[in-house]
Simulated assay, not measured.
Amino acid sequence: MIELDSTDHLILRELIEDATQSASKIGRKLNLSQPATWRRIKRLQETGVIKGQRLDLDREKLGFGVTVFLGIKLATKGRVSLDDFERAVAAIPEVQTVEHILGVYDYRLRVVARDISDFERVLRRRIMMMPGVGDVEANVLLSEERRPGPIG
């Protein structure tokens, strides 16, 4: 684990808010020079604290108005390779995330669809047809609030 000081935490908060900000803009906000800010950001990237930058798309504006979280319990553990299941489900374009979890279900999927009938099509024709799928629980996302995470 890398030691982060308060300045590193402030830089991370700025990048979480807007990852497109330049080092000079962040530096001005934090009373740091551009080179000092850039070196700190580079160190955070090189040590793996910053793993990358992601584009945050508005799914509704792209026509995907429904998000559903699926809990999936595999029916035949041992007969279906977890890697094979993960590869197969990740190949479904509507599946945004695949999380192997501990609990009642083996996997949690985040699935986007144009509407409920489109989700039903994906569920019936793609997900339920996969070998090894047993119990499935669906939870429709009503609203979402983004939180920055455990940055001290």
Rank of each mutant, 00 (worst) to 15 (best):
I2Y: 07
L4E: 00
T7I: 07
D8A: 02
T20R: 06
Q21N: 00
S22M: 11
K25I: 00
G27R: 05
R28W: 00
R28F: 03
K29T: 10
N31E: 06
L32G: 09
A36G: 11
A36K: 12
W38T: 05
R40F: 03
R43F: 03
R43I: 03
R43P: 05
T47W: 05
Q53K: 06
L57N: 02
D58S: 01
R59P: 00
R59I: 00
F64K: 09
G65Q: 09
G65H: 14
V66M: 15
V66E: 15
V66N: 11
T67N: 07
I72H: 06
I72D: 10
L74G: 09
T76G: 08
T76L: 12
K77R: 14
G78V: 12
G78M: 11
R79G: 04
V80S: 05
D84Y: 14
F85T: 12
V89G: 15
V89C: 15
V89L: 14
V89D: 15
A90M: 02
A90N: 08
A90C: 02
A91K: 03
A91Y: 00
I92K: 10
I92F: 08
P93A: 05
Q96M: 12
Q96W: 09
Q96E: 10
T97D: 07
T97M: 09
T97N: 12
E99L: 05
I101L: 14
L102W: 12
G103K: 14
Y105L: 10
D106L: 09
D106I: 12
V111R: 03
V112F: 11
A113R: 10
R114G: 02
R114P: 06
D115T: 02
E120A: 06
R121G: 09
L123E: 05
L123K: 05
R126Q: 09
I127D: 12
M128Y: 05
M130Q: 10
G132S: 04
G132C: 09
G134F: 15
V136T: 10
V136N: 07
E137K: 15
L141R: 07
P148W: 11
